[in-house]
C-alpha cells in the first residue's frame, strides 16, 4: 500500500465516526444554540438576542427548578454510590466467577423494560391502595393505608433503581483490576477494616467512582418520565420545563435556551466534582 492508499483507508475508517459525531452531536447542538439566541418579536418574526437567557434568570420558577433538579440529582448520585459500592465490591471481589454473570444480569433487568413500564411498576407497588401499603396493613405495622407515591423520596428511589447499573459497571471494572494482595497488604501492615476501605480500596476505586458518578448524575439530571410519573404535586424536574417550553407553549427558543443551560450547568457540576476529587476526565471516564 502506498501513502495515498493508506490515507484513503484511514479516511474510510474514520468517516463513520466522524459523521456520527458531526451529524448527531455537533450539528444538533449548534442548531439548539442558534435557536436559543433567537427572540420572538412578533408573529413569525425573530431577532438575535439573549432574551431567553435573561428570562431564565429573571423568573425564579425556572432557576429554582434547575437548582432543585441539580440537588436531587446529586443526592441520587450519592445514594446510588452508597448502595452500589458494596454490590460492586461483592461482584468483583467475593462472588465466584459464575455468580458474577448472574449478578450483573440482575442489575441489568431494570433496563429491559421501558421507563414508562418501570414507573408504572413502582406506582402499582407504592400507591395508597398498592401492594406495599396493603402488606404493611396486613402484618399490622400500620393501621390505615399509607401513600408512598407522589413525593420526592419516591422519585429518588425510582431514579436510583434505574441508574444503579451505570454505577456498578465502572466500579466492578476498576475493582476487578485491583490485585487482592493490595487489600491483604493493607491488613498485614496493621490496617483495620475501616482503614483498608478508606485508605486503599476507595482511593484505588476512585476513577471508577468518579466515572460512575458522572454518568449517573448526567442520566439523572436528564431523566424525564420517572420524576414526572412518580413525583408529587410540587415535584418539578428541569427536563419537564424544557418539554413544556417546546411542546405545550410552542416556545422553541426558550426551550433551546433551557437545554443549553442544563448542559452548561451539569458540565460545571461535573467539573467541580472532578476538581474536588482530584481526578481528570481522562483518568476516569476514558479509563473504564
Amino acid at each position: 500500500m502506498n501513502h495515498a492508499q493508506k490515507r484513503l483507508a484511514f479516511l474510510l475508517l474514520f468517516a463513520p465516526f466522524f459523521l456520527w459525531i458531526l451529524l448527531l452531536i455537533v450539528l444538533p447542538h449548534i442548531g439548539v444554540f442558534i435557536l436559543s439566541v433567537k427572540e420572538k418579536v412578533g408573529m413569525g418574526v425573530y431577532e438575535y438576542g439573549l432574551g431567553n437567557y435573561i428570562e431564565f434568570f429573571n423568573e425564579p420558577v425556572y432557576w429554582n427548578t434547575l437548582l432543585r433538579t441539580a440537588v436531587m440529582s446529586i443526592f441520587v448520585t450519592i445514594v446510588t454510590l452508597i448502595i452500589g459500592f458494596p454490590i460492586a465490591y461483592y461482584i468483583a471481589k467475593i462472588a465466584r466467577q459464575r455468580a458474577k454473570a448472574g449478578l450483573f444480569l440482575l442489575c441489568l433487568i431494570p433496563l429491559w423494560v421501558s421507563d414508562l413500564v418501570r414507573s408504572f411498576g413502582w406506582i402499582v407497588l407504592l400507591r395508597e391502595t398498592g401492594i406495599v401499603s396493603s402488606f404493611l396493613q396486613y402484618i399490622g405495622i400500620v393501621s390505615g393505608p399509607v401513600e408512598f407515591l407522589y413525593n420526592d423520596a419516591t422519585v429518588v428511589v425510582g431514579l436510583v433503581y434505574t441508574v444503579m447499573l451505570f454505577m456498578i459497571v465502572p466500579l466492578v471494572t476498576t475493582l476487578d483490576g485491583m490485585d487482592d494482595s493490595l487489600i491483604e497488604a493493607g491488613f498485614n501492615l496493621g490496617g483495620s477494616r475501616l482503614t483498608v476501605l478508606r485508605r486503599i480500596i476507595i482511593p484505588y476505586a476512585m476513577p471508577g467512582i468518579i466515572s460512575g458518578c458522572i454518568v449517573v448524575f448526567m442520566l439523572t439530571a436528564g431523566s424525564y418520565l420517572t420524576p414526572i410519573l412518580l413525583g408529587g404535586k410540587n415535584s418539578q424536574w428541569f427536563t419537564e420545563q424544557i418539554y413544556e417550553q417546546f411542546i405545550t407553549r410552542f416556545n422553541w427558543e426558550s426551550g433551546a435556551a433551557f437545554g443549553v443551560l442544563l448542559l452548561i450547568f451539569t458540565s460545571i457540576t461535573v467539573w467541580i466534582g472532578l476538581r474536588l476529587s482530584g481526578q481528570t476526565l481522562s483518568s476516569t471516564v476514558a479509563k473504564t
Binding site: L182, A185, F187, G191, S192, P203, Y204
Partner: peptide, 21 residues
Amino acid sequence: LPPNRRNVKMVFQHLALFPMM
C-alpha cells in the same frame, strides 16, 4: 489473632505496593 494484629509482615509476590500513594 486477625492479620492486622500479628507482628508478622509480608512481602507479596507482586509486592502489592499501593499505586495511589
